[in-house]
Design a binder for these strands. Structure first.
Lengths: 216, 216, 216, 216
DNA sequence: TATGAATGAGTATTCATTCAT
DNA sequence: CATGAATGAATACTCATTCAT
């Protein structure tokens, strides 16, 4: 039942860009808490301190709004990582800094991560958006591994670089998920652990030490 | 006069157990295609070839129905794995068979996997159910790793067994996700790849070869 | 959600009359607790320890079932009163015994009273049934008052006997309602109070002491 | 060419307060005709000339809507009575004016009365609301009786003031019920009758003339 | 006789979206 | 620019009632 409280917003006529950010902030918050379907435009508008028609005027339909959230949060995350892992650094340094930036971001923006990883995955219309983001990550990681190997004068063995990279990204996401659910966990420590798995494990693996199914 | 063969096999008045399975089949299918919220009880009932009230009578509310799906599919998957990876086998053999069974299951029941992992993850009410299932998996994997190490006369180094196990499970889930999205991919091959990552990478890691953050 | 508990009723093949009484008992109970609309045939059948089709076979539709309840309970109550207030007694004795029987009945069968008075009144289809029952009561009471007056050699003044009787019945029902809501109250005492109101108050009134609106 | 006079007065976009009253009007009408359960929100909305979502937005769920009706009608009735029976008047004058106002209200708003007394009584969730209203009435009546007695230099005998008041209120409600069912009946005349019962009967009773059960 | 299986029809409630002001 | 008012269309859930066995 609509409460009859007059909100009387004390800040009117804000420039469009500011308003849009307010709306996106509210949307990310609500989407992450409720999920795409359970989130209501009413709640988002109210949380943004703005009327519903404005939300529609600025960001379009609910689906478009969600995509906008995805976009903003995804870009922010990518920038955080890219900003930390400069391409001119040695591979292990890059990987470490990338992981640290990544887990740092997830730890600091749990809502963003929830929207990106947990909500978007379940809903068909956004799977593509997500997949492409992960693909970029996989590519970057594979590149780093390859670079590292070549620096040691070796090359990836028969095992595909991509699959290892995919597994590493998966493991990373999984730990990030765990981190998002454990507010007291330390992002730095989680990054160190993942770095261990990635660097030592994958390194060894890429050096050719491989396992084969038993032939019965 | 030609005898009129009864072409409609009178699919009615089936015993409860049968109908329940039909309903769960339909529910898994619809939930996996549409997601929990977007799925409608109408569609599930229609797909099961039965009226809505029967679904409510037998399986309860939408939420309870989803939990029932989760339960059945999760149990099936766990049984597939447990049946393949007998505890008396050596650790590497167990791990390999377990992975093969797992990827085989995912490859053969993509719908189940979608229900279990993609839908359940996004919806608050089911996160717990999911988390506990994953926790059991992590425990099993950690146990296998520990067992394997001891068999080699070693012990896990400073890196927590659990975190490595968690990362491995995450990587595995991630590859399963990928497999579910690529109908032509070969489950067996995917299992082999994951076995490489798990056995060689983790093995090395557990043997004490660890990485430490640079101290600036 | 239908529980899958097998009830295995230990008494089968009871004679029809017994079964019908069981059903009516259950129906009165459920109707009085939930009200006509909120009561469900499922609950009634279950409470009667019998399957729904049997209820329909024996007592007909929900509406018919409710009428049957009304009938049985109404008859019981009327019989309790009539049995106590024999016509050959003097008027005050009759009134007193009638009231005592009435409040005794209500105190002992709160469910019956709830069905008769609270539920039936709100539902259009049963208003008639109820009204006729009350009309009979009013008539009886008016008869008693008239009889008592004549015994004193007087006649009812200008005030209609019927209206006073109606008011008395209303007051009685109201106290009965109050009694039904107060399990610890004593029916006998309530009857005494009502007797006071009825006998002394009405007696005086009927003797000609009347009030008239002020003429401005 | 004839000017086309706008015959449809564009009954749209009315302010909230107006619409709320329209909705309550419709709700009272429908609830009184059908009863709480049988009434449908669809019919109420349609009767109010507005869509269902507006009803929910303004007045909330069906239960809340019914309570709102109860509240408005109850308040109106109480105000009608209180406005007529000013406390500074002598007790008999007050009682008479109160009764006249009450029966006048019931005669003029049969729907309100039906909602207040017939429907609310049967439904558990509203019994409390009702009981408290009646309790207030009983208290007022008891107060008036007491006041009148003291003015005559007497005090209430052993019979509780409250019980007599309760019986009077019950009788009044009963006559009101009768009035609501008989559109041609005259409210003023009914009030006079009730005044007789109340003033003469109760007066006598309170003066100490009491009846006692025979001791056998 | 007795019942588990089955459903058509309805009901409360919600939500994304759009006008009129 | 900004919003209160408004709704079409869905959706979960229930219930009286009836068959087939």
């Amino acid at each position: 039942m609509l409460a009859r409280v007059s909100t009387t917003p004390s800040f009117k006529r804000l420039p469009r860009a500011v308003r849009e950010q307010q709306m996106l902030d509210a949307a990310v918050k609500v989407f992450s808490r409720r999920g795409f379907h359970a989130a209501s435009m009413d709640e988002i508008a109210e949380d943004a301190g703005i009327s519903k028609p404005m939300v529609y005027a600025y960001l379009g339909t609910k689906e478009e709004l969600f995509v906008a959230c995805l976009h903003r949060e995804g870009t922010r995350m990518m920038q955080a990582i890219a900003g930390a892992a400069a391409p001119e650094l040695p591979a292990d340094e890059r990987l470490w800094r990338g992981l640290r930036a990544f887990f740092g971001f997830v730890g600091a923006h749990r809502d963003s991560w929830a929207v990106l990883y947990r909500q978007a995955r379940g809903e068909q219309p956004f799977a593509g958006e997500l997949a492409s983001m992960r693909a970029r990550l996989v590519e970057v990681v594979a590149g780093m591994l390859d670079h590292a190997l070549r620096a040691e004068g070796r090359e990836a063995g028969e095992t595909d670089l991509d699959v290892i990279a995919y597994a590493l990204v998966g493991a990373t996401e999984s730990l990030a998920d765990w981190l998002a659910d454990h507010p007291q966990a330390d992002p730095e420590k989680t990054a160190t652990r993942m770095m261990n798995v990635a660097w030592v494990g994958a390194g060894q693996l890429l050096r050719g030490d491989s396992w084969r199914p038993p032939t019965p």
